[in-house]
């Protein structure tokens, strides 16, 4: 199966995501301060930083849930409009730091909601139930089952999302995001609250998603997860991008150590 029908990268194609000088000011607080980020085809980019660094706000700006105070965001060369549903239509999909499934819908229905923007049957065809409606509905269900299988939870298709175990809820959120046929997936702390085995399988899942041709940006606090998975890592501190580079570069950068652990005492 294929998760996305994105074409192979060529030298001429613009980057999947290009954010230039994204700034978000809340009252007197600058939560995100002129952040640039570029994501290429099939790239996994990690976004790390201490609590309150502005990572989630940056995600919210990318997905249209917050309107950036200034800056420009474009996806495959096209500037994104502000509305969340338009951004999702363009090809960005996200998961949430604190899981936001539709708790009283089944796993399958959750994924079907993700298909909404890729389907078009309206009120009249829902009332008429013509062949085209039935075909689209059947296709949608088949695709949703496929995605549930992809994240390894097809047997829970008919379970209400609220009754799923925690790890499955995280995976269902990813399946739901994949159902929107994205070219770029934004994962906000996909392994928060997971045990080591679950984290390992989440890592596997992220790799498999990339193999399907998607680019991924991931916020995470689990450093082993970030450094063994990401092609590039950006460090956000107090709203500004402090460092960006490969895992090794970032790990050895004294400024990163300082941001996380504090400045060494003189002579110490």
């Amino acid at each position: 199966m294929s998760v996305s029908a994105s074409s192979a990268p060529t030298a001429a194609t613009p980057p999947v995501l290009e954010a230039r000088g994204v700034t978000k000011v809340f009252g007197g607080l600058t939560a995100v301060d002129g952040v640039d980020l570029e994501v290429g085809e099939r790239e996994i980019v990690g976004l790390i930083g201490p609590n309150g660094a502005g990572k989630t706000t940056f995600f919210n700006c990318l997905t249209g849930m917050e309107t950036p105070t200034s800056g420009r965001i474009s996806y495959r060369g096209r500037t994104l409009s502000g509305k969340p549903h338009r951004v999702t239509e363009s090809g960005l999909a996200r998961t949430f730091q604190n899981i936001r499934l539709f708790p009283n819908m089944t796993a399958l229905e959750n994924v079907l909601v993700g298909r909404h923007c890729r389907t078009s049957q309206g009120v009249l065809s829902a009332l008429g139930r013509g062949p085209r409606y039935r075909r689209e509905e059947a296709d949608g269900r088949a695709r949703a089952h496929e995605l549930l299988q992809f994240v390894g939870m097809d047997r829970h298709a008919e379970t209400l999302a609220r009754n799923l175990p925690y790890g499955d809820q995280r995976r269902l959120e990813i399946a739901r995001a994949l159902a929107t046929d994205p070219g770029l997936l934004l994962l906000d702390e996909p392994t928060a609250g997971m045990n080591p085995q679950e984290t390992a399988s989440a890592m596997q899942l992220v790799r498999r998603i990339r193999e399907q041709g998607l680019a991924i940006v991931v916020i995470e606090h689990d450093m082993r997860f970030i450094f063994s998975l990401c092609d590039r890592v950006a460090v956000l501190v107090q709203g500004q991008k402090l460092v960006e580079g490969t895992a090794t570069e970032v790990q050895q950068d004294p400024r990163v150590v300082e941001a996380y652990l504090g400045k060494p005492v003189d002579g110490g």
Binding site: N98, G167, M194
Partner: peptide
């Protein structure tokens, strides 16, 4: 959870 993680998983990195 079935994993032993608290349901309200540690909310870290929350931004204003």
């Amino acid at each position: 959870d079935a994993s032993g993680a608290p349901p309200g998983a540690p909310v870290v990195g929350a931004v204003a």
